[in-house]
């Protein structure tokens, strides 16, 4: 129990660190100074929000009969705000296409002659 408490405290300290960095950056941008209490409150809110996200993601994955949370679950978690949902979907697609590219590049390096599945690209020399 004590170990779990200290683990949570350490993680909260990590969140606090990043939150204060972000606040510093935004504060410089709009010429405002963030009170320490505000930073602590944002940390606490982000922590709690992460708890809600985690429980949601877990439920979504379980509903799909999975034990691993995937990009699809995160998209569901972001559905409430339209612009956020669009942004997350776009980011997810970017990640998937990067993986695909990397995989194809690896394939090309290992076996150059095997190109029966890949669509023919005329411009490639």
């Amino acid at each position: 129990m004590d170990e779990e408490f200290s683990r949570s405290q350490r993680l909260k300290a990590a969140v606090h660190f990043t939150v204060s960095k972000i606040c510093e950056e935004i504060g410089q941008d709009c010429g405002k100074e963030f009170n320490k209490l505000v930073i602590a409150a944002i940390t606490e809110t982000a922590f709690k929000q992460c708890d809600i996200f985690a429980k949601d993601l877990e439920a979504f994955a379980r509903h799909a009969k999975r034990t691993t949370i995937t990009v699809e679950d995160v998209k569901l978690a972001a559905r409430r705000s339209t612009s956020l949902a669009i942004y997350i979907t776009q980011k997810g697609e970017e990640l998937t296409s990067t993986h695909k590219e990397q995989r194809e590049r690896k394939k090309k390096q290992s076996g150059k002659s095997d190109e029966s599945e890949a669509p023919a690209k005329g411009s490639e020399d």
Binding site: A46, Q49, L95
Partner: peptide
């Protein structure tokens, strides 16, 4: 990939709050 997206989400949440 899900962790990367969640990192993005949480960062957006904090930025939006600030």
């Amino acid at each position: 990939d899900a962790v990367i997206l969640m990192t993005e989400m949480l960062t957006i949440f904090v930025r939006e709050a600030a």
